[in-house]
């Protein structure tokens, strides 16, 4: 059962085709990652999903009917570029964003205060937002995203610009929401992070969806003949070796693709025979990054090393 179905979305800005016939499905209870490099069309897709932009064509279906205000009310959205009213006070800000979602009342105020306490902000409850540090402003923004208890949490590049403390805090929130059975959708260009958090993904490149589905299924499909290796020593003898099709260095790990499935065992033996210390040898494993490089070609900015 799908919670959201994205069907044939297209969006152009003048001559630029930002999103080109994008289709994918977000299953109930999933953590869904929309993955692609900067400028691939992630934000535009997310904006269309939330009806901030109208698609040129295509539609987004929420459990059987086209998305509209009802969806907006059940979404907590954290955009990539975050902002708050500087002159507004902390509690006032939180209550205002919830009021826009149609939530108000004593319970909500109580909940807001609980969150502030949990995030160590109780003493700033009546401060103006501009008096807070940047990190604390980000915390306020997180609370504003989830205070109205949304069924969908949509995060656009959620970890960009966060300090390590807030990165952990946000990860905590995501996991908590996942355990509550909420649906979490986020976009990111950080493959490692997506790989750790998501169970379903869609990869977007130049506005086109190049891959989508459950992460484990995708991995097993792309992982045949792939070995993910951590080692110490010299493996240059593998270059141009008859059973190796390709070697890719990803920094922490090295991806090796052999020509035939039975070569996997032979490779391990070869490494040991050549005095290479094998720290991790993961047969039939492939990183999301490798899949992406296979599909989209050049690596460029997908190589960025994440905080997490």
């Amino acid at each position: 059962m799908y919670a959201l179905e994205v069907k044939n979305l297209c969006k152009s800005f003048g001559k630029l085709k930002a999103v080109d016939n994008a289709s994918f499905n977000v299953p109930e209870g999933s953590v869904f990652g929309l993955i692609g490099r900067n400028g691939a069309g992630k934000t535009t897709t997310i904006r269309m999903m939330m009806n901030i932009y109208m698609p040129d064509s295509g539609e987004v279906i929420l459990r059987g009917s086209t998305v509209g205000q009802e969806f907006k009310n059940s979404v907590g959205y954290l955009p990539e570029e975050r902002g708050l009213y500087k002159k507004m006070r902390v509690l006032e800000t939180l209550l205002y964003f919830a009021e826009l979602k149609g939530k108000a009342g004593k319970n909500l105020t109580k909940k807001a205060k609980e969150y502030l306490e949990r995030f160590d902000l109780t003493d700033r409850i009546n401060s103006k937002v501009e008096e807070l540090s940047k990190g604390n402003q980000q915390k306020i923004q997180f609370i504003a995203t989830i205070l109205h208890d949304p069924e969908f949490v949509i995060l656009d590049e959620p970890f960009s610009g966060l300090d390590p403390i807030n990165t952990n805090l946000l990860r905590e929130i995501i996991l908590e929401k996942k355990n509550e059975g909420k649906i979490i959708i986020f976009s990111t260009h950080l493959m490692d992070f997506a790989e750790k958090m998501c169970d379903h993904i869609a990869m977007i490149d130049h506005g086109k969806i190049i891959l989508n589905g459950s992460l484990s299924q995708l991995k097993s499909k792309y992982a045949q003949r792939n070995i993910s290796l951590n080692y110490e020593g010299d493996i240059s003898f593998l270059n141009n070796h008859q059973m190796v099709e390709k070697i890719s260095d990803f920094g922490n790990t090295t991806g090796i693709k052999v020509k035939l499935p039975e070569h996997t065992q032979q490779l391990l033996k070869l490494l040991i025979d050549n005095n290479v210390t094998v720290k991790k040898f993961d047969a039939n494993d492939i990183s999301l990054q490798e899949i992406f490089v296979q599909l989209a070609g050049k690596e460029e900015d997908v190589m960025e090393v994440p905080y997490v």
Partner: peptide
């Protein structure tokens, strides 16, 4: 200040 994107999600 980019508040508008948060507002437009509601």
């Amino acid at each position: 200040s980019k508040i508008v994107e948060v507002l437009l999600s509601s």
